[in-house]
Design a protein around this nucleic acid. Structure first.
Lengths: 250, 250
DNA sequence: CGGGGGATTGACGTAGCTCAACCCGAGTGG
DNA sequence: CCACTCGGGTTGAGCTACGTCAATCCCCCG
């Protein structure tokens, strides 16, 4: 069936030198941010100037849960993952954030603490502002708060979706739902179905749906054997969305 | 051990006639809303006037997931539960909302749809505004958006906590965590430890942590036998928080 | 070429889902 | 005020999904 044996990961690889993003596009990215739409050109330029860029190599920790939330960060390039530590030590993978999505201190309130750890899943470039600066921006341009509110409500919605997903009981249902969710958020239609644009290991999936890497491997092998997905080392592509939806229902 | 045999539920019972809340306190409640703090007296009064009160008897559906999100509602009295329908039909209990908490269309954007069903868990009194009115309030008093943003960020935080909780694996851990969460949000210190101020059945707990009513019953019996909680028909009280925390760790 | 991280696969034991019977307490209607 | 009913809770007996431990393989990268 089809051409399964694609050797290399089809996921586009993000490479950024350790401490720099490509400088030229910063302004463009900032201006393109969803929560800054509708501002006057002059304001946009002023605001852009307040963001600093920071790069992280894949795997580096951006900040730890519990640390003081000193800034708001926006993903300019690459993927960040948010992890929340459990009471018994290890981490739960809460979400992946891609270009344009933000994390850290959303409200501009001083004294907050990060409630999750942020880790560079690929190498990433971030645009960041300190809380106090961000707070003053919010005060000045209140329309931003309205837009941020909408985006945060959307994120809340996504989190509730995750909660729903996690209460499904046969693990296969959880995994199928998780893959659907990811492919909706990050999927790119291509020749071979819908590739999830993100390096995604079995353990990543496991940490997302609350199971073990072994079980996740078994389930995904099964899904692949049924022609529902196509997968390799750290990548997954949806081959038959309808069947995947059916698997998510049970 | 102690006086287990408390016959009647110690949870304070909310009774409201079917279609009305006690009218007098509406203004007071609206003025006390966290996201309206700091407004001028005159504005507060004007805004209060836009809220209408609606009562629901326990068990009635306030709105269904998928229906047009025509208003923002605030809980004035009683408890509302939010349910999200799963792909295979039944519902997942996402959260309980008590006095002062809001649900529905947070952003004032027209055309949105409710992403979860809201059900009166006890009899409730709601204060509601239509989206368009709410939108105009937001436009006019932008500080409200900033506060709403903070509250929504907090809710997002709570949802992420729920996600973490749900990935814990022995069911006992999930249930212990869920009870802790509830008691932090709703607990009231009393003679017999920390009572969760909310009618809470075994199935409620089950729907929250993604298990069955039977298992939840077994686990809670075990917890009671170990002197960790005290529980009866639709109520739960924490007797030994430390041990409960230990149970949540595993 | 060697090392390491990702993935697969097997064997085994148990947590917990399912089905089912049963009890109890609280409303409700006569 | 009693009887009935119904929803909530408990408990038991299987059966299986899946967690655990362990061995092996295979890319990828240095």
């Amino acid at each position: 069936m089809g051409s399964i044996s694609r050797r290399r990961s089809p996921v586009h690889k993000v490479v950024i030198e350790a401490d720099r993003c490509s400088s030229e596009e910063v302004r463009k990215i900032v201006s393109g941010l969803p929560f800054l739409q509708g501002l006057a050109e002059a304001d946009l330029i002023a605001i852009s100037a307040r963001f600093r860029q920071i790069g992280f190599a894949a795997g580096r920790t951006i900040h730890l849960a519990g640390s003081p939330a000193g800034r708001l960060s926006v993903v300019a390039e690459g993927t960040v993952k948010l992890l929340r530590p459990t009471l018994d030590g290890h981490d739960v993978l809460i979400d992946f954030l891609n270009r344009g999505e933000f994390f850290g201190n959303l409200t501009g309130a001083p004294g907050e603490r990060n409630s999750e750890s942020a880790v560079a899943h690929t190498s990433v470039c971030l645009l960041a502002v300190g809380v106090s600066v961000f707070h003053s921006i919010l005060e000045r341009h209140s329309s931003i708060a309205v837009r941020l509110l909408a985006l945060t409500a959307q994120r809340l919605n996504g989190a509730h979706d995750m909660i729903r997903l996690l209460s499904a009981r046969p693990v296969e249902r959880r995994i199928a739902s998780a893959l659907l969710r990811l492919s909706e958020r990050l999927g790119q239609p291509g020749t071979e179905g819908n590739l999830i644009q993100l390096p995604l290991s079995r353990s990543d999936v496991a940490e997302m749906v609350g199971t073990t890497a072994e079980t996740s491997s078994r389930v995904m092998s099964r899904l692949e054997a049924s022609g529902i997905i196509e997968t390799g080392r750290r990548w997954v592509s949806i081959r038959d969305r309808d069947k995947l939806v059916r698997a998510a229902k049970g």
